[in-house]
Design a protein around this nucleic acid. Structure first.
Lengths: 152, 152
DNA sequence: ACTGAAACTTCTGACGT
DNA sequence: ACGTCAGAAGTTTCAGT
């Protein structure tokens, strides 16, 4: 349950490169490979490591347009919030979705191939949905930082 | 340079589990392991795969508070934008930072252990910085979706 | 708890199709 | 471009300290 300095180093290294081998890890933190293996397994089983993801290049994959869309729900009850949650859960262009304090708004991060398809997404998918009242879009001009590592 | 269906399947699978072995991949897409290895290497070298990251649990690591902070810069010239970019680049609690259309605002995603340290971050780090004019904070109440896979 | 070695699995380059 | 195969590398279990 508690993390010592070896565990934290493992987590730091694996955040930067999730495919490091136990051998490579063992050299970087001065611990045997077998211990790295055991600790890594423990960190995975106890849920500190939720998984491993390949980090892909948006532009190369043709979805270079990123948009942050603020969404106001039609009604602010639990049922409607669930409908909205199901909606964004099933939309592959939505990469992140958060509910916020304030006017009980939501903000979602959406990727599309171009501005035309972004516009189509907003007016054909988002706005017509029963749970949504209105949206405010903001296009990302520049990504200063992304995929920052959690401070461990 | 062009991706066929095998490449796309590899990318989809590796987004969901970045530690899949070539053997496991080969079974899932009906291709030999050596071909999976070759294609994976090519996808890495050509930049479709930027890297692999372990996905950690924020709450377990004691940084469960997530905040989206809208930042207005003091002046909207290039130098000031660079100062701000350097600032967020060096702050470990900032996981994402985007510049947006509209009033030339920025939005940053910040994680902290609790509300006290969030408040300290805003008033001791962000607001005093020369590049920043003012900020508007919004606490994340619920994460509906995060780390969504790019549509490939 | 850790190391080191042994048994097993995976990786990857050479070769043939 | 693909599969097969074999040597190299990595993983993980287990005995020993």
């Amino acid at each position: 349950m508690h993390l010592d300095e070896f565990d934290r180093k493992l987590l730091r290294l694996l955040q930067l490169d999730g495919r490091l081998t136990n051998n490579e890890l063992s050299q970087k933190i001065n611990l045997s490979a077998s211990q790295c293996s055991r600790r890594r397994t423990r960190l995975e089983q106890e849920g500190f490591i939720k998984g491993y993801r390949a980090d892909l290049d948006r532009e190369k994959l043709g979805v270079g347009i990123v948009n942050l869309i603020t969404v106001t729900l039609a009604t602010h009850n639990r049922d409607n919030a669930q409908r909205f949650a199901r909606l964004v859960g099933g939309l592959p262009e939505v990469l992140e979705a958060y509910s916020l304090t304030g006017e009980m708004d939501y903000i979602i991060k959406v990727v599309t191939p171009d501005l035309r398809s972004l516009s189509a997404f907003v007016s054909d998918v988002l706005l017509p949905h029963e749970s949504v009242q209105h949206v405010k879009t903001a296009i990302v001009l520049d990504t200063l930082k992304e995929g920052g590592a959690l401070p461990v």
